[in-house]
């Protein structure tokens, strides 16, 4: 009696184990087949955003190369990546910071391009999960272009006189983007001061 119970339990465990093993194998296979393509997609998206930021109006997207920059010490966790933007593989024309902000619907991933002097060249949204038609108003180029050419600690509100006009109805989204940009503005000063270290 006891023995048969033991064998039933063993049989159940083994068959579940087998199912799990086979599925895990299949998932691992699918992962190894698709991972390169996925990384390519992510990298493409980021470099497209950078190219878009550094494009002269009306001109074709320029040939840019990106150089890695070490993150300054004590950088906040929201900073994902800092790169130098080079033309002809030697002249540094600016920097790009990939940073995330906490939006209404989750993480907002931003690409912020800087001129060599540390002023903002342009801000692009890479991904977000804001409410369509509401929070997405803060992700339009019209709103984001307010940041262009600005630097340092910026203020935001719906009143006049502040650096950035918040979007009514999308307060949380625009503030999330704003906080991320300010964070990156602090960071870029450090990056430029440390300048040579990464070259």
């Amino acid at each position: 009696m006891k023995k048969s119970y033991f064998f039933t339990a063993l049989k159940i465990t083994l068959s579940l184990f087998l199912v799990c093993g086979v599925i895990a194998g299949a998932v691992a296979l699918a992962y190894s087949v698709t991972i390169n393509k996925y990384n390519e997609n992510v990298a493409n998206e980021k470099s497209n955003a950078i190219a878009e930021i550094f494009r002269e109006p009306g001109a074709e997207a320029p040939e840019l190369t990106l150089g890695d920059v070490d993150l300054p010490e004590n950088s906040p966790k929201s900073v994902k990546e800092v790169s130098k933007v080079l033309v002809d593989e030697k002249t540094v024309i600016g920097y790009a910071i990939n940073i995330t902000g906490k939006g209404f619907g989750g993480e907002i991933s931003l690409m912020i391009g800087y001129n060599a002097d540390g002023s903002i060249r342009g801000v692009k949204i890479i991904s977000h999960a804001e409410t369509p038609g509401v929070g997405t108003k803060a992700t339009t180029n019209e709103h984001l272009s307010q940041y262009n050419q600005k630097s340092g600690e910026l203020t935001i509100s719906k009143k006049k006189g502040d650096d950035i006009a918040a979007v009514s109805g999308a307060t949380i989204s625009s503030k999330a983007i704003h906080a991320a940009v300010n964070e990156a503005n602090k960071l870029i000063i450090k990056v430029i001061n440390e300048g040579g270290s990464a070259q």
Binding site: L16, C20, A26, V27, A30, Y31
Partner: peptide, 30 residues
């Protein structure tokens, strides 16, 4: 699949397929 652990086995199978589909989607329909 033994009937005592069928739900567990179903969930493992389903989540396996979902993960595979997710991998395929993020590679080809990003």
């Amino acid at each position: 699949i033994p009937k005592q652990v069928r739900i567990a086995a179903f969930i493992v199978i389903i989540s396996g397929f979902v993960t595979v589909i997710e991998f395929i989607m993020r590679a080809y329909v990003y």
